[in-house]
Structure formats: structure tokens, C-alpha cells
Write a protein that binds this DNA or RNA. Structure first.
Length: 332
DNA sequence: AATATTTTCAACCGCCCTGGA
DNA sequence: TTCCAGGGCGGTTGAAAATAT
């Protein structure tokens, strides 16, 4: 735990600071079983030494299955500029119009990317006496037809909104959209996880592990390192703290492979080094992770490789369309 | 290669609003 | 009507990573 949070922790028993793998799993499983909301009670019931706000934030900004991973696209950037010009720092409102992005993410993006652009442009065009006006006019770039269509489909609204109900608010807020009618239960959101991931995250009592058969070729014929497939053990004693969802996804893919080959042995290092595309890199990462979690992989080289692969799982995932069926839950 | 500076972003803080008692 | 707890939101922080010198 870094010193940043330690003084706060001394005041009570509630934990602060970065979330661990185990905490993520606890929160995810609890929300799947019981739904979200009532965050203070949820935190206690889930056995988390966290305040309700912290749990909500972790869920909303990081664990939600409908979050979009990866960099902000040019279309999204343009939309952020457009909406910020309309509504100012109404980050949650803006986030509602950009699917899969959180208010925190948009706010950070604005501060780190777009505000700097604005500052530079304002410096160049320093003849504008009104900084607010300069901000709006400077940052809104012409939209391509595609961008315009995207913006129109996203922004066009019909019903009332809290902002609309504030009669006579500034003209800057005209055209503000209604609150999103999004009423999504946590269960339906969880079903956006890959089916196999759901099974592992939220197993039915006494359910047998599903046997899945995926791209298996590259991991075959390398039976050297015994791999533990005891997921409960993994939950109880995670050997590292990668992105929890990504890790479990790849772990499951790997498990499917291992079961399919019925020997429960994978040479993680050689599998990874011979992998040539994203899918198999991902599988190799999972194999490496599994190997890492076992007592059978003790070499420094194996551990180094495992760690490298795990910390690079997100880019592998985001660049690999072959994994979309798993992520989108359409894989049978 | 080492150090300094800048950028990124997860997470917290505090204010405000809302709904229930 | 008032009080209070919970939740949402925008602002801020600071460690880690990336980049520059």
C-alpha cells in the first residue's frame, strides 16, 4: 500500500487505494448475484473493507461489462468536443452520449488532451477576449458526414431532462439531452460477459466446468509444465494483480484448450514464444498465467514471461477481433 | 544511461440533491 | 418540515508510465 492512502486507512478499518484482484472478483460476483445499488450495504455484504462510494466507483469506472476498452477514437473525440461545447463540464451527461465511456474517462481525456489543444489554440488566437467563448469556438472542428451522422444519432432527443427542467438556464445548455432511459439490471449487464467467463466468475453450485474448444493448434505438443486448473484456488490466492476481467477471460480460454487436450500440461514459455497471432498470444498468456499460479513453474524466465504477457493482455485483447465472440457472449 | 519533466488515469474528496423516516 | 443517509457529480490528487533532456 502506498503512503498516499495509508494515513486515511489509519482512521478506520475501511481500505483505500488501488483495488486488488480479489476485491474485483468479490465485487463482480456479488453484483451478479444480488444486483447493484445500496452501495454501503453491498460493500459490507460482499465482505469488502471498502466504503460504498468506492465500490460504486470501481464498478462504474472499471468493472462494468459494457465498458469500452482502448483509446478514444477520432469520432469519439469529436463528439466530446461537440458536447463539451454545448454543455461544458457536464461529464456524466456527455458520457451518456458516448456508449461505453465513463464520465471519469472523458473528463480525464478532456483534461489531458483536449484542454491542451484549446490552450495552444487560444494562445495562438489570443485576440479573443472571452476565454469561455474561445474555448467553444476553438475546439469544435468540422465534422465529416460520418461523424455528423454519429453525433446526430447520439445527441438527438425528444423527452425532458433535468437540464431542460431548469427553465431559463444558459443558452449554452440548450439542446441538452434527456436523461438516458437506460434501465439495465445488473444481471443483464453481467450477461454481456462471455458465457465462459460468467460460469467461472459466478458458478452454479456443483456445476461442472464447461469444456470449450478453441483455437488449439499452437499450444499442442508441449507438455512440460503442469497447470493448475483450480479456479477457486486462483480466486483465493491470486499470484499477481493484472486486469481481473481480462485475466479470467484468457484463463478460461486456456482452460478450454487444456481440457480439450486432456493432459493438463502446457509449456507456457514455448507456447508463448511460438504464438504468432493475437489469439494464440492470448491463449499463451493465459497458459502462462495458469502456469504462474501453479507451484510447478518456478523458473525466473517463466515468471518473467508470464508477467510480461499478463501486463500486456489488454492490448492483445483490444486488437484481436477473433476474441470478440467470447467477449460479446455469442460463442457457444 | 541517468535524471528531469510531463502525461495519464485510477481513485479520493467534498458538495449537492433526493428520498425516506 | 426537518433531519439524515445514500448516491451522483465535478474537481483534485499523486503514483506510475512515458517522454524529453
Amino acid at each position: 500500500m502506498s503512503s498516499r492512502w495509508s494515513h486515511s486507512m489509519d482512521k478506520g478499518k475501511l481500505k483505500k487505494g488501488p483495488w486488488t484482484f480479489e476485491e474485483d472478483i468479490r465485487l463482480l460476483r456479488y453484483i451478479k448475484l444480488n444486483g447493484e445499488g445500496r452501495w454501503s450495504a453491498l460493500a459490507k455484504a460482499a465482505g469488502l473493507q471498502r466504503c460504498g462510494k468506492s465500490c460504486r466507483l470501481r464498478w462504474v469506472n472499471y468493472l462494468r461489462p459494457d465498458l469500452k476498452r482502448g483509446s478514444i477514437t477520432p469520432e469519439e473525440e469529436h463528439l466530446i468536443k461537440e458536447l463539451h461545447a454545448r454543455w461544458g463540464n457536464r461529464w456524466s451527461l456527455i458520457a451518456e452520449r458516448i456508449p461505453g465511456r465513463t464520465d471519469n474517462e472523458i473528463k480525464n481525456y478532456w483534461r489531458s488532451h483536449l484542454r491542451r489543444q484549446q490552450t495552444i489554440r487560444s494562445t495562438i488566437n489570443n485576440d479573443c477576449p472571452d476565454p469561455q467563448k474561445a474555448e467553444i469556438t476553438d475546439i469544435v472542428l468540422p465534422a465529416t458526414p460520418q461523424q455528423t451522422q454519429f453525433i446526430m444519432s447520439t445527441v438527438t432527443t425528444s423527452s425532458s431532462s433535468p437540464l431542460h427542467e431548469e427553465e431559463g438556464t444558459s443558452s449554452e445548455l440548450q439542446g441538452a439531452p434527456p436523461p438516458s432511459p437506460q434501465v439495465i439490471t445488473s444481471n443483464s449487464m453481467i450477461t454481456n460477459y462471455p458465457r465462459d467467463l460468467q460460469t467461472h466468475l459466478f458458478p452454479e453450485p456443483h456445476a461442472t466446468q464447461p469444456t470449450t474448444h478453441h483455437n488449439n493448434q499452437l499450444l499442442a505438443e508441449q507438455p512440460e509444465v503442469a497447470v493448475s486448473l483450480d479456479v477457486d484456488q486462483l480466486y483465493a490466492c491470486p499470484p499477481f494483480e493484472p486486469d481481473a476481467l481480462s485475466f479470467i477471460l484468457y484463463y478460461q480460454i486456456c482452460s478450454g484448450y487444456i481440457e480439450a487436450h486432456d493432459h493438463h500440461h502446457v509449456q507456457a514459455g514455448s507456447a508463448a514464444s511460438t504464438a504468432s497471432d493475437g489469439t494464440n498470444n492470448a491463449m499463451a498468456a493465459a497458459a502462462a498465467a495458469a502456469a504462474y499460479s501453479s507451484d510447478d513453474c518456478e523458473s525466473d524466465a517463466c515468471m518473467d514471461l508470464s508477467t510480461d504477457l499478463l501486463w500486456n493482455i489488454d492490448p492483445i485483447y483490444s486488437q484481436n477481433e477473433l476474441l470478440d465472440p467470447y467477449w460479446n457472449g455469442s460463442q457457444s
